[in-house]
Design a protein around this nucleic acid. Structure first.
Lengths: 194, 194, 194, 194
DNA sequence: TATGAATGAGTTTTCATTCAT
DNA sequence: GATGAATGAAAACTCATTCAT
């Protein structure tokens, strides 16, 4: 019977993801990753040419996961509000990963790793596109007002992220139901008192 | 009379702000700032103890400017929608500076410079508080639905930033009127077709 | 009967020799040798304790071959000029190997692997001694001027290498006849026009 | 009065040259150079982008010095033998530096730093060209036999180096007079006893 | 006061060698 | 035996900070 051959590649990726998320790209040292992963520093270099490539691997992984989520079609018979809720429900499960992606994206964009930007943009496009598709459908069916689907989807995503992953220091963390309730209020009904 | 004694402090701050905005905190070197500012590297250290202090100075400046804006009271007789527009109008003039603040905040948060977080949070609190105050007033007057003013203000801000400063690669830049139109649609009326 | 048990030791030695010659000692990695030899990296270590030992093995091989050549006595009845030509003729066949030896010797001397120096020196001594013996004989017989046989042999060897193995970027490669012709001109007759 | 401002650049270059000469390119570490030069490691990088550039600087210096020597014209009225002696006399003063150049050249050629090869080749060309010019003149004047000046010069140089700088482990060091005596014997008169 | 050359701690990266399979 | 994944010591290089001028 196998002696659980410890997947070092996975260990490295997970340690790196954790460290990147916690400390950011620049502040994460290869030593740190190695130690966290419980492997030798050299081991990392057997899998990845350099720090940047390791970073890109992580980004790709995130993108792939999010893409996969985005590709699952929703039950078409549902009304938009419900579909949006389902989309959000799905997004909720990914909000941490997405938060990581966005966070790293931000930093690496600053640092100017141009290769990483593409991946990043692809990621945002995947998620925004995912929402946009459903926004468009709903608009086509007259369920919601006609609007620029991409822009609307983008702003929706930002709203969503504002309610979930980010800045918990400015408001207490909300659970799924609360997030959805706020979202519905803000987006479907509007704040106008009438 | 002095031969225009070039305000070196100002030059340093401006160069630093520009460089931080363009390249981020970590990727901005003191050499770069000095060169951009047209002063010797050592000069920077006559004004600021270290890179972090320089960074904080810039953050403080932003906060002060934004606070100042926030402190100008609005004409109280206006209806909420108009007041919100005026708030947004004012914010619009600061969007670039605010974008810098947010960007740097993000990076420095990642990097884990804990001292900087305070400033950051103060900044966000100032702006969010500014909006929240008006949200609360409007809710009190029954102009809008009752809601958590802080949270609503926070999400509003994010919406606003999504429409203006950020991610111009995902949608074309919008002018002030477009931003306000979208904002009104999303926030006041809601997307529900009825 | 064995399925041609591929002589891994030989393969390693040949790959190493080729790589050492092409890239030098330091720039040759064990990975490279293993790949070139078509064996696993670990295999090399079943034959040789470390890189240096592998290097020494190659040097020894060269020395042995050259010694063997040096030990074949020449027909004593020949005049010195002819004998010298025969010596050169033999050397010509070894010039590539000798070039390798000299090249590696040079580098490893720099690097300061003292153990390798001995081998090196033995090699040069073998070849120089080979020539020197014949120089001495010729001088004894009055065929050539009396001279320090070792030094003369050494300079002869250098001349020979200059004409053959080295620096083909400074002059076009010469074939065996040309080499011998030049050699004779330079060494036997002198440049003096009379 | 100046406090002897210690020319660090020179110190670095000298330490590097010494270390490169003693240990070779690969085996010389930047730490070593720094320590030898009595400066901080970073200081080296204020003068040279990287190790290779430092190496090239040293090579350039050697080339320049040798070029300068080569450019001094000789008294044209002298007979070739005397001129050759003068050339050799001059070379003798540079033999150490030249030895360094050749040694490093050898190693770096192995290592395959293509940029350095050029410099190297230029160096050899400078010196060979210098000798070749005088060989050609002498041949034109009928002082020596007609011969390929470049090739002859090249072989002469090798002979010279064999007599001076290299391989003192194979023969005792020769002083200037001895070198010239041998050189004359070998090159002008030939070994032929008559 | 202003400067920038000098510094070295802290990073990333390489590669000979080991050892479990 | 043969293997190559794993290792870490050692090397190159970066950059915030200092300090003599």
């Amino acid at each position: 019977m196998e002696r659980k051959p410890v997947d070092r590649r996975r260990q490295v990726i997970e340690a790196a993801a954790r460290s990147f998320q916690t400390f950011g790209y620049k502040a994460t040292t290869m030593d740190q990753i190695a130690k966290l992963a419980g492997v030798g520093k050299g081991t990392i270099y057997t899998f990845f040419t350099n720090k940047e490539e390791l970073f890109e691997e992580i980004m790709s992984g995130l993108i792939a996961e999010l893409k996969e989520m985005a590709d699952k079609t929703l039950r078409p018979e549902l009304p938009f509000t419900d579909k949006l809720m389902e989309v959000l429900h799905r997004l909720y499960d990914y909000r941490e990963k997405h938060a990581l992606a966005v966070k790293l994206a931000q930093e690496v964009r600053d640092i100017g790793t141009p290769m990483a930007r593409e991946g990043l943009d692809k990621l945002e496009l995947a998620v925004v596109g995912y929402i946009a598709r459903h926004v468009k459908e709903a608009a086509d069916k007259g369920e919601i007002k006609r609007c620029d689907p991409e822009l609307t989807a983008y702003v929706m995503l930002k709203t969503y992220l504002a309610l979930t992953a980010e800045s918990h220091h400015l408001h207490k963390p909300l659970n799924q139901e609360e997030v959805q309730a706020y979202f519905r209020t803000y987006w479907m009904e509007g704040l106008a008192s009438r």
